[in-house]
Design a protein around this nucleic acid. Structure first.
Lengths: 221, 221
DNA sequence: GGCGGCCGTACGGATCCGCGAAGGTTCCTC
DNA sequence: GAGGAACCTTCGCGGATCCGTACGGCCGCC
C-alpha cells in the first residue's frame, strides 16, 4: 500500500489488517515500485497523489510488467481521473474519503477474482522469507535464492503451516512422493542444505527449526 | 445485460456496443440466468431490482456455478447494498445514474482482468520476443519466426505468465489438449525445436528456461 | 557422563535434461 | 489415390545435476 499521508496510510493499513491481510506500507511512488517488484504482493493499493512518482505512473509501469491487482485511491474524485486510472490498467478505483467497508469489500472481490483466475498462487510469507509456489522461487528479504526441487518441496510444505511440526516420515511422504525406501536421514541432509541457503546463521535457524525428537517446523512469522 | 427498465437497458446496450462489445439484453432475472447459462458471455451486467429473480440472487447463483465476470448496477446507492453485492460474488458495483464512460471503463478493466476481452488480443512481450496470439505469430527483435502449432502453444502458454514454472504435465494438458497420454519427453523435443528458432544461443536460453526437476518457464522480460 | 538425536561431509548412484535420429501421422498437391 | 512434406512422437545416449546414504563429530537431554 502506497500513500504519502501517514495518517491515511495507517488507517487503510488498519482496515486491511483487521481483515487478515498482511500489509506493507510505503510513502512514495518510487518506493512503491521497488516494493512491488521485490515483494510481489497479491494486490497494490495506490494513492494517486504521491511524491517522486505519482500513482498513475506507478500503475502504468506495474501493469506493463505484470498483471498484479491494482486498486487506485484518490482525493480528486473527478470522473476523468477515474477513467484514466482504469484505462491505464487499474482494476478498481476509489475516491477519498475511503469507506473502510467498501475498501475491504473491493479488495476481497479483487483478490477473489485474481486468485481464482488460475493466476499465480498466493505467496507464502514468514518474516522476510517468501515462498512462491507458482514461480518455484524463494526469496529472503527480497533476494531470490536458488533451491533444488527437494529443498523447495520441504520449505513449501513447512511454510504452508507455520508452527506445525512435521516428522521426517511426513516430510518424505508429502514432498518425495510415496517412495518408502528413503532413509529419514535424507531429510536431515536436505534441511542442512536448505538452511545454508535461506538462513543468515544456519547454526541458529530463524525459519526451519528443529524440534528435538520430533522433526522440523517453520517458525511462526 | 439484464435490466427491467427498457429505456435504461437500451442506453447501456448502446454504450457497450459503441465500444465494440456484442451485447445481449434480457428484462428479468430468470431470463438473465438462462441467457448466461446458454450463451456463456464474457461478462454480465445485472440490475439489482428485477422481476422474478432479483439481481443479487442472479449474482449469487451465477457465482456458485461459474466464475464469470459480474457487474452490478442499482438505483439504491446505499453502502450496504454495495457491500452485499461485492460479498456475494460481484466483481464490481455501480450506482445509478450510470455514467456511460465509467461503465465502459469498468467493463474494460474487468474484461482485461478476466482475460476474456472480445477486443483485439494483446501482444505478449518478453524482451525482444513478441507473441501474437491473434495472428498466431512470433517475432524476435521484429523478425517473424515460423513455429509449428505445438511450439506456438508452448511459447504462448509460457509467455502469458513470465516467471511462472510449468511442469511438463501442465504444458501437455494446457497446450496439447487432454489428448491420449503423451510422453513428457515429447515436451522436451518441442522445446528444443522452439529454442532453435527463437534463441540466439540455444545452449544458454534467454527466453525458455529449464527449471531442473520441475519444468520450464519464460524469463521475466 | 552416557546416550540418543542432529549436523556436516563426501561419494556412488539415480534422475533429469539436451539433442540427434527415426518411425508414424496428417495434410496438401498433383 | 499416389507421392511428398511438414509435423508429432518416441527412443536412446551422453553429460550435468541432484539425491540418498554412511560415517564421524557434535550437541542437548536425562
Amino acid at each position: 500500500m502506497a500513500d504519502d499521508d501517514p495518517k491515511h496510510a495507517q488507517l487503510i493499513r488498519l482496515y486491511l489488517e483487521r481483515e487478515g491481510h498482511q500489509v506493507l506500507t510505503v510513502g512514495d511512488g518510487r518506493a512503491a515500485l521497488e516494493m512491488a517488484r521485490s515483494r510481489r504482493p497479491d494486490l497494490v493499493v495506490l494513492d494517486v497523489m504521491m511524491p517522486l512518482v505519482d500513482g498513475l505512473d506507478v500503475c502504468r509501469i506495474l501493469r506493463a510488467e505484470s498483471n498484479i491487482a491494482i486498486l487506485l485511491v484518490t482525493a480528486r474524485s473527478s470522473e476523468n481521473d477515474m477513467l484514466l486510472g482504469l484505462d491505464i490498467g487499474a482494476d478498481d478505483y476509489l475516491a477519498k474519503p475511503v469507506s473502510p467497508r467498501e475498501l475491504t469489500a473491493r479488495v476481497r472481490a479483487l483478490l477473489r477474482r485474481t486468485g481464482a483466475s488460475d493466476g499465480p498462487a498466493s505467496i507464502l510469507r514468514v518474516g522476510d522469507l517468501e515462498v512462491d509456489p507458482g514461480r518455484f522461487e524463494v526469496r529472503v528479504a527480497g533476494a531470490p535464492v536458488n533451491l533444488t526441487a527437494k529443498e523447495f518441496g520441504i520449505v513449501e510444505l513447512l511454510a504452508r503451516e507455520p508452527g506445525r511440526v512435521f516428522t521426517r516420515g511426513q516430510i518424505i511422504d508429502k514432498t518425495f512422493g510415496f517412495e518408502h525406501d528413503v532413509s529419514e536421514r535424507t531429510v536431515d541432509a536436505h534441511v542442512v542444505n536448505l538452511r545454508r541457503k535461506i538462513e543468515a546463521n544456519p547454526a541458529e535457524p530463524r525459519y526451519v527449526q528443529t524440534v528435538y525428537g520430533r522433526g522440523y517446523r517453520m517458525a511462526e512469522r
